[in-house]
């Protein structure tokens, strides 16, 4: 384990974010730690995905956007230090709501990232990376005899685990997940949740979810977003047993949202 729980992996300081003139995030400050799962909850349109995309500069590609404040990863400001967004995205992987494997073989889906990032040292190394990533994503046993099959033939739950394996293959340190189970049935959802709890030993995980029970079950910390603001950010246990803010109480008990 890391020597300190005090230096956060991700530190967000007074973050504002605009789409044109529309302010989508306002004065967000929070810290996320290694070996922890941070869940972000809140009603639709409150800025959860926008926030998540700020963490790996995915919003940069949207014209007319503006960001104020700071996001530090390992104490480095990811917006001002001249960091290459490609390097950043290697360090900060992302998994989306709908499984989006490439229409290629299972193997190539996982090997893709390491290849284009130039991480691969020969054929054996590539195979080892693919196997290790699939194992980490708890998918190896299901696909090891079908590595050359088209990934689109997998079940949705398997496709999502494949996307997680693909994200892991480039050796990220942080994994962002935007509603990773909303397209999945309860069994596949549980598999992803188990996977998340296992992955947190090695990664910092930030997950957006509309599933309150999921946030409660898997996360260590939970943040409630509301109209672009972070209303409350606290230990998950506290959020679900004794929230400090009335709006959190109302949201987690389903009285608004």
């Amino acid at each position: 384990m890391n020597e300190d729980n005090h230096t956060p992996k991700i530190k967000v300081l007074d973050l504002d974010f605009y789409y044109g003139k529309v302010k989508a995030l306002s004065a967000i400050s929070m810290e996320m730690h290694e070996h922890e799962i941070t869940a972000l909850i809140g009603p639709s349109g409150c800025g959860k995905s926008t926030f998540l995309r700020c963490l790996n500069r995915m919003n940069d590609t949207i014209p007319g956007t503006k960001l104020d404040g700071q996001i530090l990863i390992d104490d480095m400001d990811i917006y001002t230090t001249g960091l290459d967004p490609v390097d950043l995205r290697q360090k900060v992987g992302m998994v989306f709501q709908k499984p989006n494997p490439f229409p290629q073989s299972v193997y190539d889906n996982v090997a893709f990232g390491p290849r284009i990032m130039g991480l691969v040292r020969g054929h054996v190394d590539e195979e080892m990376r693919v196997e290790a990533s699939l194992k980490q994503a708890a998918l190896w046993d299901d696909v090891k005899d079908h590595l050359q099959d088209n990934a689109l033939g997998l079940s949705l739950g398997e496709q999502q685990r494949l996307c997680i394996a693909r994200a892991l293959a480039v050796e990220p340190e942080i994994i962002l997940m935007d509603e990773p189970t909303s397209a999945l049935d309860p069994i596949a959802t549980l598999e992803i949740e188990n996977l998340m709890t296992r992955l947190k030993d090695d990664y910092t995980i930030v997950v957006v979810t509309h599933n309150m029970q999921q946030a409660a079950r898997v996360s260590d910390m939970t943040g409630l977003f509301w109209l672009g603001e972070l209303v409350e950010f606290n230990k998950t246990k506290q959020i679900f047993t004794r929230p400090e803010e009335e709006r959190t109480e109302a949201y987690v008990t389903g009285r608004i949202g």
């Binding site: 409660a216 246990k237 047993t241």
Partner: peptide
């Protein structure tokens, strides 16, 4: 117990 009920359903 309370935390277990609230977080693990």
């Amino acid at each position: 117990c309370l935390a277990l009920i609230a977080t693990q359903q």
